[in-house]
């Protein structure tokens, strides 16, 4: 047993966060997540792109002192990519754990980023993991792997993804405690931009004001509003001597839309501020 723990520690070493990630709580999400972790409940983070979901998971992993394994989901992600597979090594066949299995063994937080991008038959493998069984059926070995007591499953899900074809199945959704994220209020967002982007409060305030304006016309053809992440990018460019208008265009306007008219509108808003 001691050997097992020792081996777990070795495996987990690379997944611990050494430095505290900067995260400014927006509500009671830290409290909620901590309670879910104590109850070992899986958590679903809902919110628009770039509002701080991933940073929040990093922060919580650091705060509760557990390793974090992140899997970016995509449409070619198979169950075996999560669970693991036998590999050929010299003349032997060697089992190689997938990131999910690894997280279960070492008691990590397993974070499936943008779960809607994964194939629906792949997401089904997490079902037994996310109810009271907390087990994973590895049919290739065969083995039913019980989760480490500290294992936790977190998924992120962006309701702004417009394709109804890529919606989460109700049977998957109903296994999670959901925490809703949105863009921070202007004061907090300004603090975040100052802290992360390294600009003065006045510049950060203008960037935040720009974001609020862009978000108010999201319905006019933007898939999503300007994220806090984009504001930080713009701030970082400004902090490195790029003209603010140019920085905003490159970091905020151009990534948001290819539409020429929309670009002009966004450009006009930037021109007002700088």
């Amino acid at each position: 047993m001691k050997t097992e723990d020792h081996r777990s520690c070795d495996q987990a070493a690379g997944f611990y966060l050494e430095k505290e990630p900067f995260y400014l709580p927006l509500g009671r999400e830290v409290e909620l997540f901590s309670a879910a972790w104590q109850a070992r409940l899986p958590v679903m983070l809902k919110g628009p792109t770039g509002c701080g979901k991933t940073r929040f998971v990093q922060y919580m992993a650091w705060k509760i002192g557990r390793p974090l394994i992140t899997i970016a989901c995509h449409e070619d992600l198979f169950a075996s990519d999560l669970i693991g597979r036998f590999l050929l090594k010299d003349d032997q066949t060697v089992w190689s754990d997938g990131p999910l299995t690894q997280a279960m063994r070492i008691g990590a937080i397993c974070y499936l980023d943008e779960i809607v991008e994964a194939r629906k038959d792949t997401t089904v493998v997490i079902h037994p993991l996310t109810d009271d069984r907390r087990t994973l059926n590895i049919d290739k070995k065969p083995e039913v792997l019980p989760a480490h007591p500290d294992f936790m499953m977190v998924i992120s899900y962006n309701p702004g993804y417009q394709s109804v074809v890529k919606d989460l199945k109700p049977s998957t959704r109903q296994r999670f405690v959901a925490i809703d994220f949105d863009y921070p209020d202007p004061e907090r967002e300004e603090l975040i931009v100052v802290r992360e982007g390294g600009v003065d409060a006045a510049t950060a305030g203008r960037l935040v004001s720009l974001a609020a304006k862009i978000r108010s016309i999201q319905q006019r053809g933007l898939a999503e509003g300007a994220s806090t992440r984009l504001l930080i990018y713009a701030a970082k460019l400004i902090g490195r001597g790029i003209d603010p208008r140019r920085a905003c265009r490159s970091a905020i306007c151009l990534p948001l839309s290819d539409d020429e008219q929309m670009q002009e509108t966004l450009g006009d808003l930037v021109d007002d501020l700088f």
Binding site: K213, S216, Q261, M262, L269
Partner: peptide, 13 residues
């Protein structure tokens, strides 16, 4: 019109 409408709505809410 379309782009100025967009500007107005973004600017004033």
């Amino acid at each position: 019109k379309a782009r100025l409408d967009g500007y107005l709505q973004a600017r004033t809410g």
